[in-house]
Every structure is written in structure tokens, then in C-alpha cells.
Amino acid sequence: MSSEIKKRDLIGVGLRSFFIQASWNYERMLGLGWTFAMMPILHRLKLRGDARKAFLKRHLGFFNASPFVSSFALGTVARLEEARAGSDEHRTEDSVERIKVALSGPLGAVGDRLFWHGFRPMAALLGVAAVQLWGIWGVLVFLLAFNLPHLCFRFYGVMQGHRLGLQIAKEFSRPFYKSLPRWTERLGALALGLLIGIKSFGDQPVSWVTPTILFLSIGFGFMLLKRGCSPSLLFFLVLMAGMAVVWI
């Protein structure tokens, strides 16, 4: 029986990576989730006895990265495990751990920038603008705008990580990864303008009150946020002021 990793094993790893963060803890962060995601590789390599125990032990170590791009690291380490199992050469036990730690930082930075600061706010603004126009159907715009790139990254990441192995750093030096945040920012800004444009006219007969309230709130809110006020505090203040206006 061949112990070569197959495409379906990598798809299995990609699917399990959706839950990589489920057992996040302060000691080894994504360590347990990482091991869970690597199980198809363990089963494919048919490790028994001490080799199996060593596999589980080395993968339970520390790992932390953005879950959306962790699949790149999973693919890379799967390639290493495959090479290790296929040869008599016994690399040091900590080589996998070193690579995991080395990939943690860059993948965390890339993933957070692309997803939490890029796709998520952009998709949310598109979704909120779409909800104003199409009601509940606008929610689909949000889900599609976020999940199309998300799903591509999950599965492309694990395949590409496995294909490139230790050369994975080359992947992130491609111009595509530099231009992507620029385009998500632009689309986000466009969606923000669209939303303000839609809300400033509103559904009800056009009056000067609603656009004035909207623009005053944006202006004052922006000023206070720039001075370090948190959104939660401003929400509390606006709500209290609103209740005072309504009931007093």
C-alpha cells in the first residue's frame, strides 16, 4: 500500500482546518486543532507504535496563525511528513515544530491583514448596503463576498503548501498578495460611500432631518473615534442621548 499523500487527504485536511480554532487555549493556542487537522495525513502514512506516538506528540506543540490561511502551513508540513515517512532518513523530531513556529508569524500577519482587515469589513459593508436595497437577500451578498475568497484560500492553501513544501515563502512574495489588500480597501470604501448615499436619501419621504442626523453622527463620531473613544462607549452615549430625546 502506498503512503503517498493523495488529493482527497489534502481535501480532508482543508475541511478539518475550518475547525482548527475550536480548542484554542493559552498554552499552545491552535496546537490541538492543528493535530486534529493533520489526522488524514497520520492515517495515510499508516504510522504505528512509537512513530504514531511521536507524530501526535510533535503536532500537539505550539502553533498560532490566522485560521483562514493556516492551510498553507498544514500543506507544507504534510509534505514534510510524507518525505520523512518515505525515506530512511530520520530528521530531528523538532524540525516540524521549528517550521510550524517559523510559519506562524508570517501567516498570522498575512491572514489578519487579508481577512480581518480586508475581506471581512469590505464584505460587511457590501452586505449592509445590499440589505438596504434588497432586504434579507442582501445577506447573501455579504456571505458570497467573504466566502468565495475564504474557501479558495482554504483549499488552494493546503494544495499549494503541499506542492511547494519549504518553498512556501515564495507564494506570499507574489504581487497578487500585495495587490489584494489594496483592492479590498477600495471596494470597502466604495461600499461605504454607497451605504451613506442610500441612507442619506432613505425610504421615507425626503426630509432634511434624517440626512442631517446621519451626517452629524458620522462627523462627531469620526472626530471622537480619532481621539481614542471606543465604539462601545460611543454606542452607549448615542443610545442614552437618544433615550433622553425620546422620553424626556
Binding site: 469589513p121 459593508l125 470597502g188 461605504l192 451605504l195 451613506i196 441612507k199 432613505g202 434624517t210 442626523i213 446621519l214 451626517f215 452629524l216 453622527s217 458620522i218 462627523g219 462627531f220 463620531g221 469620526f222 471622537l224 473615534l225 465604539p231 460611543l234 454606542f235 448615542v238 443610545l239 442621548a241 437618544g242
Partner: peptide, 11 residues
């Protein structure tokens, strides 16, 4: 509308 405006400010 004031709360949506605040959301707009955050964005």
C-alpha cells in the same frame, strides 16, 4: 439613524 451614522463613522 444616529446609530447608523455612528457605524458609518467607525467604517
Amino acid at each position: 439613524m444616529a446609530l447608523i451614522g455612528l457605524g458609518g463613522a467607525v467604517c
